[in-house]
Write a protein that binds this DNA or RNA. Structure first.
Length: 116
DNA sequence: TCCCTGACTGGTT
DNA sequence: AAACCAGCCAGGG
């Protein structure tokens, strides 16, 4: 299995608290794999029900929007899950990362782009 | 084992 | 602003 890397990714995703979001790139960096944002997406894609403890819905893309997936309808579910956690979407369907992005260590200006 | 595909991102055109 | 392009990695046929 690919767990060595996927495991690290899931572990980081699990750290994202309710009502907050993280970006794919951010998770990749936190997991120790800078520039592997795409792998984070793949890892989440391969999630099974058995891993439902992973809050996949709290992961959004670098622009604060829910990434479109191959299966239509999923994005709506993700948005609902986030709204249930009081995460707000603007008229363009985007989340204000400055306000909602999870910042584990220090709270900085929270650039919309986590430095890779 | 080769080949294809897929929840991304940042930099260039 | 939109389209392209190059990295990046694992799993299934």
């Amino acid at each position: 299995m690919a767990d060595s890397i996927y495991r690290r990714i899931y572990a980081e995703v699990r750290r994202v608290p309710r009502g907050r979001v993280a970006t794919y790139g951010q998770i990749a960096t936190l997991a120790g794999f800078p520039r592997h944002a795409r792998q984070v997406g793949y890892a989440l894609h391969s999630l099974r029900e058995s891993e439902e403890s992973v809050p996949w819905h709290r992961i959004v893309n670098g622009q604060g929007e829910v990434s479109p997936r191959s299966v239509p309808g999923w994005d709506e579910i993700q948005r609902e899950l986030l709204e249930n956690e009081d995460v707000e979407f603007d008229a363009r369907g985007r989340i204000d990362l400055v306000r909602y992005q999870w910042r584990p260590r220090s709270r900085r200006k929270a650039a919309a782009r986590p430095r890779l």
